[in-house]
């Protein structure tokens, strides 16, 4: 099979096999809906609420992406400051680590109280807070571990710090940056949903999940989970595509 088709069909086949096994498992075990819904139960749920899935899926998606973009901007900024200045690195590291260690579920009610009613803002804020850490760390490590010779080949010719950053430091940290972005994209997604579920305000797939729970609509709950997984996969592969476009050189041919 040609490699392009193969890249598409192998994962799709894996998903289909997974769904069949899932259906079979529920059927064989004779589980009722409230224990474990099966894929065939999900179809009616999607058919009934498809417009809600679109509206709320979109709300979840855009808030995650905005939070992530903020995380990239702030994370890269902090990473650059920490990567270039040893003093700043020593000063900021404990603060960052401490901040990152706080479970974000505890921050959600605080944020919800601080900015009452600003649901979109709150959700974006949590998505941002939970996801900027890996980006900041990867950029700072990438920049601070740049071998001095790399700097010297340009500096010896009289290049400015800015030139060295654009020509060497930035491209050299791209593989690490994308590695961190793959983690961050998942985290941002968790952040958005956390806000939507813990502090429900009728927006996003998290809120749909919450109302399904209230109504004991088990197939709908599972349908939301699967939709979330689908969105997560979509975002993740967008990052992979960006990585291949901008840092494809870092990938070694196997063998």
């Amino acid at each position: 099979m040609n490699p392009g088709l193969r890249k598409f069909f192998v994962p799709v086949l894996a998903v289909v096999i997974f769904l069949i096994l899932w259906e079979a498992l529920v059927w064989v075990m004779g589980w009722p809906n409230y224990k474990m819904a099966s894929p065939s139960d999900l179809v009616p749920a999607y058919a009934k609420y498809w417009n809600l899935f679109f509206i709320m899926g979109w709300q979840t998606l855009w808030r995650t992406v905005v939070g992530l973009v903020l995380a990239i901007i702030v994370g890269v900024g902090i990473g650059m400051v920490m990567g270039f200045s040893r003093t700043m690195r020593e000063a900021l590291y404990p603060l960052l680590v401490g901040f990152n260690a706080i479970p974000k579920a505890t921050v959600v009610p605080i944020v919800a109280l601080m900015f009452v009613g600003a649901h979109d803002f709150n959700t974006v804020l949590i998505a941002f807070m939970i996801s900027f850490f890996p980006i900041a760390v990867s950029i700072s490590i990438g920049l601070s571990t740049l071998e001095p010779e790399y700097r010297d080949i340009l500096r010896a010719l009289g290049a400015s710090q800015a030139t060295i950053f654009w020509k060497i430091a930035l491209p050299k940290t791209l593989p690490e940056f994308f590695g961190a972005l793959k983690v961050a994209v998942t985290l941002a997604f968790i952040g958005t949903n956390l806000m939507e579920i813990v502090s429900p305000h009728g927006r996003g797939l998290g809120a749909l999940f919450d109302s399904a729970k209230t109504n004991s609509d088990y197939p709908l709950m599972f349908a939301v989970l699967i939709a979330l997984a689908g969105l997560g996969i979509l975002l993740y592969y967008i990052v992979v595509w960006l990585e291949n476009t901008f840092a494809g050189w870092a990938e070694r041919q196997p063998g």
Binding site: E147, E149, D152, I153, K167, I168
Partner: peptide
């Protein structure tokens, strides 16, 4: 800029 340098590590840019 009238100086050229080479080191033990060739430091070529992989990209």
């Amino acid at each position: 800029s009238t100086v050229g340098m080479a080191f033990q590590n060739p430091v070529l840019l992989e990209w």
